[in-house]
């Protein structure tokens, strides 16, 4: 799995880093950043997918 955030779309809703704090973090403006592009286990992968389907801006891309 490879996780990316489209910075041009992200508006800092914060859903990703709240749902999957092991995969996503935030910058000084509160916009989402990817901490771990390849989640190390099933749980982290599941939470990364959950973050993707909750992002209001459709800014998260996941390559399986």
């Amino acid at each position: 799995m490879k996780v990316t955030i489209d910075a041009a779309r992200c508006q800092g809703h914060g859903r990703c880093f709240n749902l999957a704090p092991d995969v996503f973090g935030f910058d000084e403006l509160g916009n989402g950043v990817v901490l771990v592009a390849s989640p190390p286990d099933d749980r982290a992968e599941r939470l990364a997918r959950l973050a993707q389907v909750n992002c209001p801006e459709h800014a998260i891309d996941i390559e399986e």
Partner: peptide, 8 residues
Amino acid sequence: ILPAFAPG
């Protein structure tokens, strides 16, 4: 204003 309302 965003930094004042960021998670930290």
